[in-house]
Write a protein that binds this DNA or RNA. Structure first.
Lengths: 333, 333
DNA sequence: TCTATAACATAAATCGTTTGACTTCATTTC
DNA sequence: GAAATGAAGTCAAACGATTTATGTTATAGA
């Protein structure tokens, strides 16, 4: 591990001169620049970013904390973050809490200990609230994607889940469906509550009573939704339309319908939420009508807001809301 | 951003004392410890890790550089790295080059600039060789997963792809299949060459001639393999067994077979490589017989080797080779 | 020849910690 | 009661860069 001083000594100049070469600053004779570059090359010298960041008081790093890196749902978000970071000249570094709260705290602190200029975090779970508080108290530059924290003012990127759910439900109503069900997502997530609220509001506005059992608790995975739908069918209480809290939930519903020899959308129309890239499942199921979330754009916006906060001192926090967009496919044409 | 000095001043002690409290070291009276902790709490003080790492000459961070974070193939590997890092007391940080060489270099340098104690990198592509050289010259602590660099001695984690391919092919031979094809993976990856070599060796040892067209160039995705298999079927040159360079390739083959009204494994037996977690595709296709790569264990081993290099000065580099294991399912029972 | 002005070089301060050497002062030991 | 012990604290030098203020030359102009 060579230092700038060793390079300087080897060439016979002061370390400040080497620093200037390193940073492409003027004030170095061509010969000296040449010699210094050669010495750097020869010694495989790599400057120490810690020392540099310490004096510069800036890292050019954006830290991203998420529940789980290994989740297809996040791919587009990650890409959006990366691309915008690249564009604005920041390194984007990811840490994943593997859904464990203590690990998430650790990584948040990790970034706040001077290792990043700012933090982008996902706070989609209800239990994330204290973590968000923790960050707000300490980190001067922070963007929250998803999630909520009533009463606090900070940079946010959100999706109008309630509105999206409302429109999805309204579509089912407008198509003349009579027995409309909502399969919720995992209720430990904010969005599941918002989507349920949107469903209920749409039903109410349409003057349609929400019967007992019209809201079915499920989660973000296929199996549970499939099982629940099977139960409904067996009990002869099959709906003629379902609004699902997530795409995977919708696939579970469709699976149950198809396995019972019934048809989508003729017997049951299905609308999902997210527009996740389907694993070559599209071959098996009818294409899923769903509310698309612009995850890539949300990722980009997250970095944009953070950099704005970083570079414009005193900028007022901003909350950007994206509208989900209906993507019509065969499951509810 | 408070500093240790401000905390010290507020309490009326020296900064060294605060540092001791921070690090749980003895030599602080209970009252002072109490007062210092209170001041830290009140100021929401977070110590600066850069300064600490600078003087400690250690970050307790392991940097991981990979082609693409957003690739299901890597999930188990990532989990293995994370879990072992956790176990050994290191933070594991991921950067992804998005398959762009220049970005990969950037992130490698990023870690080498003193931000990590060591690097774990994936070098699975042929074109990664110069990058590996780059790292070897500069980073004293490094583990390579996959990939190769003849002539150099360093810590490595590998899979015996050639051997695995050999055994897979041999199985097809032993089952009495006569027209055996190999669909290669993307030939810009090391493993594709190794698997091809294993296939050829097994065929040779079995005394089976490898006819023209028995090696079909494809890649790691479904569509191309599907198309190639369709061509073979159309031309009446359908094999009765295929060894695929990857699971996705195998799924492409199966798709073509099934879409042509033929049966797996009766008409064509298929063996893949990787044992990727199949997306509820298993419902559609017969279960895939494949060579399982122990990716989770490989990730763990990567961190283990790195930490060993970090903590045992002068430890000789080690090369750990994992044997892929045959997982028998319906596609080649 | 002398001075004004570039053009470059250098020393020293700084960033926020840790840590080994050092000082104080109260307590124990003989 | 003096010396030894030990705990509680302080001081200042690192760590490896950047940067400012200052110092030194060389060059050109008058």
């Amino acid at each position: 591990m060579a230092t700038i001083h060793e390079i300087a000594k080897k060439v016979g100049v002061s370390s400040a001169l080497v620093s200037r070469v390193l940073n492409g600053k003027p004030g170095v004779s061509p010969e000296n620049r040449q010699k210094i570059l050669a010495a750097i090359q020869e010694a495989h010298y790599v400057p120490n970013a810690l020392a540099r960041s310490l004096v510069k008081q800036s890292t050019q790093i954006i830290g991203v904390v998420m529940d789980d890196l290994c989740e297809k749902y996040f791919f587009q978000l990650i890409r959006g973050l990366q691309d915008m970071g690249e564009e604005l000249g920041y390194n984007v570094v990811f840490c994943s809490g593997r859904s464990r709260m203590d690990v998430k705290y650790r990584y948040v602190d990790y970034f706040m200990e001077g290792r990043a200029d700012g933090i982008v975090a996902f706070g989609s779970r209800l239990e994330d609230a204290p973590l968000i508080q923790h960050i707000l108290k300490r980190a001067p530059h922070f963007v929250l994607i998803e999630g909520d924290m009533p009463g606090a003012s900070f940079n946010r990127v959100r999706v109008n889940s309630t509105g999206g759910a409302y429109r999805a439900t309204k579509r089912l109503v407008d198509l003349g469906r009579k027995r409309i069900c909502h399969f919720t997502g995992d209720m430990s997530y904010n969005v599941s509550h918002e989507r349920l609220a949107g469903f209920l509001a749409a039903m109410k506005d349409a003057g349609m009573p929400v019967e007992d059992g019209a809201v079915i608790r499920s989660d973000f995975e296929e199996p549970l939704a499939c099982q629940r739908m099977n139960e409904l069918i067996r009990q002869g209480r099959m709906p003629d339309a379902c609004f699902a809290g997530a795409d995977k939930t919708a696939y579970g519903i469709m699976r149950a319908v198809l396995e019972n020899g019934l048809r989508v959308p003729q017997d049951v129309a299905v609308i999902g939420f997210d527009d996740e890239e389907p694993d070559s499942r599209d071959m098996l199921f009818p294409g899923l009508t769903t509310m698309r979330q612009p995850l890539y754009e949300m990722g980009q916006m997250g970095v944009k807001l953070l950099v704005r906060s970083l570079t414009t001192p005193g900028a007022a926090p901003q909350s950007v809301v994206f509208e989900p967009e209906l993507v019509v496919r065969e499951s509810c044409p």
